[in-house]
Amino acid sequence: MFLINCPYCGERDQSEFSCGGEAHIERPKQPTELSDDQWAEYLFMRKNVKGIQFERWNHIHGCRKWFNVARDTSNDKIHAVYKMGERPPIK
């Protein structure tokens, strides 16, 4: 159980949050223009890195806000928390 620093509420236990998978995958603005392969890339392909992964998290049992987290999957260290629409502050 790690701690997540919700940008709206502050530090809370992980059990208050739910993870929404990889961050920065924008829904295509014009899906109908895409080929099957392009659409499949958006729909199905996700990274699973050992190291820093950018993830979407939702403070589902709190303020219900979505935000982004840069988490090291090898040790659960959180290197950055930043709001939706912002670019990652680290690489």
Partner: peptide, 13 residues
């Protein structure tokens, strides 16, 4: 509700 909130907050703010 969670799914709709997700779209509102992240895709269509």
């Amino acid at each position: 509700l969670t799914k709709l909130e997700d779209y509102l907050q992240t895709e269509w703010p």
